[in-house]
Design a protein around this nucleic acid. Structure first.
Length: 807
DNA sequence: TCCAAGAGACTTTTT
DNA sequence: GTCTCTTGGA
């Protein structure tokens, strides 16, 4: 019977099993890339619940992204379903009748997943603050309520810029808001208050920053808002100062698990300690009865020190928690060193690269897979050649491997800006792709506008949100009026909303804009009346209609406003999805999830497209085929890291992360020169990291990708495609696209008549559809909508386009 | 008050 | 090259 119950643990290797079965006390799991650490985490939670009979509500699991949290819940549900199904029905969950599958899963959700606290540090502690922020005693007497808004980086910067220009009357060009924000963030991460900063400041500048910090805190309080740093700092201070609150959460969370432990910072570490030992120094903490802290990480993959992460926290775990033993698999450390992900060639390259770092826990990744292909290194003339060469290779690879899908391929780069050249080539050759990162969905202007409406409804003190939407859409409220009322509000010390919801005040202050202001108040009041009775999605819809935002966009009728409308529709969908996924949804929880969502969270894995992203975003992911581009000195490693050894080591870890994402094939490339922005081409040397990969693992076509070689490859690509298409492979729309693009070299087609709805292929933009025609006969112009961009007006006699038959 | 055109900054990585 | 902010005119 017992054996049966534990059978889900059978597939684990020895080290994994040690980690999963660890019951109480501290444990550090040093887990190399691809060694099954997510598996260890998930199985451990399942083991705690199913075997050790831990109440799910006593488990706190910290992940690095929201997406990782969702995935972990999902995996856990399936695992638990299997365990229960086998113990109850004697058969795996998937073999149950569909109805019973669903019932069981629902039961697990209700009794287990829903009770667990799984999420990022920020999401989890924002949640904790929703309970207890009103018990927080601020050292300067400021107050917040549980309706607090969460300000993102740009909100924070807006506030700081305002303080610099308005309160301090300084020139934001000489005293840059961004740098000041950064300095304040650093101070917060060290737990420093404005007065600490002012007292210890060296020189005028430090004093000024202290002043801004002081005013910034006041301003946040006036808006009843917290920034990202506060979401961690406030809980630390709250747990330090209030013993009741601390004991409550200490008793509640008996088992804490932390993923990506190498990227925690000192504030986060402080939080963990407060919770797990109830504020007692961990070395002397003895009450490990039915209590554990389980952290998983890899010092070699620490890549967030710019965000105050410090992998020495990981290195010090054993010392801090009282086990002096530093040998393998002591009572507080287990090493997972067997890699199940990559071929041994890829691993050898990664191991060899990372051995150049000095600050490490000694660890090698042991291969479990065969040698595999050699790593391909390509030197190109410039970034355009690099992009073209990459796309051609990719197409060749896809054409030659029946089982390889576009979604199996990822292109990784150091900086977001590098995606552009690659995107252009992908569009030109009709390869479907998705870019992760760059502009976050929730950072788009129209989305932020609507969220600002929601924030104001929840938290009327939030003047930053109010000012954002006061005249959006246009209500005839201008700069002068806004200046006047916000001056009045600061002078009187009352929130903006209180001021403008007083009709008399508005009439005397508003002047010509009074009408617009009153109209705005009526709108907000109407929305507020619907706040408690509407779901988030309904409220968003109501905002869009009643505010005139939607009709404004419709009236505008440009491509841009069309795009905005689509995004807003997408926001409604996101809200609907949120309502489906979470049990206790309301506007507040929806806003919190929007504020803390990252772009990587929304990456949909369903559609078959290649993925483009920064090396940082790639952490935790894996792909059969990986391209690492821009391997040049000054770009990767970044020029800012070249003269500090510690930063250079971090860049090397970043490279290590990149290499170890690849399962089967790895391609590296660098260019001889690169256009940095707009104008100047800059010559570039191959990255130092390339020289740290043993030559025998590389197959080079160094020097091959010159202009002439590229043309030769393009001819070859055409031949392969022709060959392939003339055989029996079915033609999806994508293949048609590439097929027709190939013909582009025959030039434009004369004498063709064009009409709305016709599909065509453009040699640069790919597949498009005609949305309008202007003029007639020889002089006709056409407006064409291509995927991923606004319509282009083209002259069909000149443009490199080909008509496409109806499909 | 609103809009269009021009200047200027931007490139490290993000919860 | 592209996004944001400022400026000046209607």
């Amino acid at each position: 019977m017992d054996n049966n119950k534990n059978s889900f643990l059978d597939g684990l290797n020895e080290a994994q099993s040690l980690a999963v079965n660890h019951h109480t006390g501290p444990l550090l799991v040093v887990a190399g890339a691809g060694s099954g650490k997510t598996r260890a985490l998930t199985y451990r939670i399942a083991n705690l619940i199913a075997v050790k009979k831990v109440d799910p509500g006593e488990i706190l699991a910290v992940t690095f992204t929201n997406k990782a949290a969702l995935e972990m819940k999902e995996r856990l549900e399936i695992l638990m379903a299997d365990i229960l199904s086998i113990s109850q029905f004697g058969q795996p969950w998937k073999t149950l009748p569909f109805v019973e599958q669903r019932q069981l899963r629902k039961r697990i959700y209700e009794n287990i997943t829903k009770e667990l606290w799984i999420g990022t540090f920020h999401a989890l502690f924002a949640r904790l603050l929703r309970f207890d922020i009103e018990k927080f005693k601020d050292p300067e007497g400021l107050r917040w309520t549980k309706q607090f808004s969460i300000y993102d980086e740009s909100d924070a910067q807006t506030l700081i810029k305002e303080i610099i220009t308005q309160d301090l009357q300084m020139d934001p060009k000489r005293f840059e808001p961004k740098k000041v924000r950064w300095a304040i963030s650093n101070a917060k991460n060290q737990g420093l208050l404005p007065k600490d900063l002012e007292e210890n400041a060296e020189g005028q500048r430090g004093k000024l920053i202290g002043q801004v910090y002081q005013l910034y805190r006041k301003s946040l309080a006036a808006n009843n808002a917290l920034d990202f740093d506060d979401l961690l700092l406030f809980p630390v201070q709250l747990l330090q100062q209030n013993q009741d609150v601390r004991s409550y959460w200490h008793k509640r969370f008996r088992h804490i698990l932390v993923d990506e432990y190498q990227d925690t910072n000192w504030t986060q570490y402080e939080l963990l300690k407060l919770l797990i030992t109830n504020g007692i120094n961990p070395v002397s903490f003895n009450d490990w009865d039915n209590r554990s802290i389980f952290v998983v990480g890899d010092a070699d993959q620490s890549i967030y020190s710019f965000r105050a992460a410090d992998f020495r926290i990981l290195m010090g775990f054993q010392k801090d928690f009282g086990d002096k033993g530093r040998e393998d698999n002591t009572s507080t450390m287990v090493k997972l060193e067997e890699n199940y992900r990559s071929t041994s060639n890829i691993l050898e390259a990664a191991n060899s690269l990372i051995s150049n770092n000095t600050e490490r826990i000694e660890k090698v990744l042991l291969a479990t897979r065969s040698e595999g292909e050699l790593i391909t290194l390509t030197r190109c003339d410039d970034e355009i050649h690099e992009a073209e060469a990459l796309v051609l290779r990719m197409r060749k690879l896809e054409a030659e491997n029946e089982s390889l899908n576009w979604r199996d391929i990822a292109v990784l780069y150091r900086t977001n800006a590098q995606s552009r050249a690659i995107e252009e080539s992908l569009v030109r050759w009709g390869v479907p792709y998705v870019v992760v990162g760059g502009l976050r969905f929730y950072d788009r202007r129209e989305i932020k506008d609507v969220l600002a409406y929601l924030r104001l409804l929840i938290n009327p003190s939030d003047s930053v949100s109010l000012l954002r939407i006061l005249n959006v859409p246009k209500r005839g409220i201008g700069k002068t009026t806004i200046q006047r009322i916000s001056d009045a509000s600061t002078q009187l010390g009352i929130p903006l909303w209180d001021l403008i919801s007083d009709e008399e005040a508005v009439r005397s202050l508003g002047g010509r804009s009074a009408k617009g202001l009153i109209q705005f108040c009526e709108l907000i009041n109407l929305l507020m009346r619907n706040l408690n009775t509407s779901k988030p999605s309904e409220l968003i819809q109501l905002i869009l209609e009643k505010s005139g935002y939607l009709s404004h966009l419709i009236a505008n009728a440009t491509d841009e406003s069309e795009e905005r409308r689509r995004n807003l529709q997408e926001l409604v969908n996101a809200a609907l999805q949120f309502e489906e996924e979470s049990e206790d949804f309301n506007v507040e929880t929806f806003l919190a999830s929007a504020a803390l969502a990252s772009d990587a969270d929304s990456k949909d894995t369903a559609s078959d497209r290649i993925t483009l992203m920064t090396l940082h975003s790639s952490k935790g992911l894996e792909f059969p085929v990986v391209w690492l581009v821009g391997m040049e000195q000054g770009l990767f490693p970044s020029y800012r890291s070249l003269d500090t050894p510690a930063s250079l080591e971090e860049e090397r870890r970043l490279c290590y992360v990149g290499l170890t994402r690849a399962k089967e094939r790895l391609y590296l490339s660098h260019a001889n020169e690169r256009r940095m922005w707009g104008g100047m081409r800059e010559p570039a040397l191959p990255s130092l990291f390339l020289s740290e990969i043993p030559e025998n693992l590389l197959q080079g076509d160094i020097g091959l990708i010159s202009g002439a070689a590229l043309r030769r490859e393009k001819r070859l690509d055409r031949l392969t495609r022709l060959d392939r298409n003339s055989t029996n492979r079915s033609l999806n729309s994508f293949n048609i696209a590439s097929n027709a693009v190939r013909k582009k070299h025959s030039g434009p087609t004369p004498g063709k008549s064009w009409k709305v709805g016709d599909k065509l292929i453009h040699s640069n933009f790919g597949l498009g559809e005609i949305t309008h025609t202007f003029g007639s006969g020889e002089k006709i112009s056409i407006a064409v909508k291509f995927a991923g961009m606004g319509p282009k007006i083209l002259d069909p006699r000149l443009a490199p386009i080909e008509p496409l038959g109806k499909d």
